[in-house]
Amino acid sequence: MRKGLAGQRLVAVFLAGMLLLNYPILSLFDGPERLFGLPLLHVYLFSVWLGLIVAVAWIAERGAR
């Protein structure tokens, strides 16, 4: 798994996370809009966070398949 597909996928998740959780993408969600009565920014941050965890879990638990 070290150099295999899973490793590359994890790097991809890392890069995607860096992108999604930083300027400029992050700034797109810093507005007055509300989602389910919650600030869009908070919903966005926590959903991306959860998404990253799920993605990493999927990759790590699948192993080298």
């Binding site: 070290r2 899973a6 994890l10 790097v11 996370g17 920014l41 941050l45 966070w49 990253l52």
Partner: peptide, 21 residues
């Protein structure tokens, strides 16, 4: 500061994605 407490936890999340390497 609102969401400013989060980087302290988002960083490890991203860092651990690379932990396997």
């Amino acid at each position: 500061g609102g969401t400013w407490f989060l980087p302290t936890y988002l960083g490890p999340t991203l860092g651990l994605a690379l932990a396997w390497l």
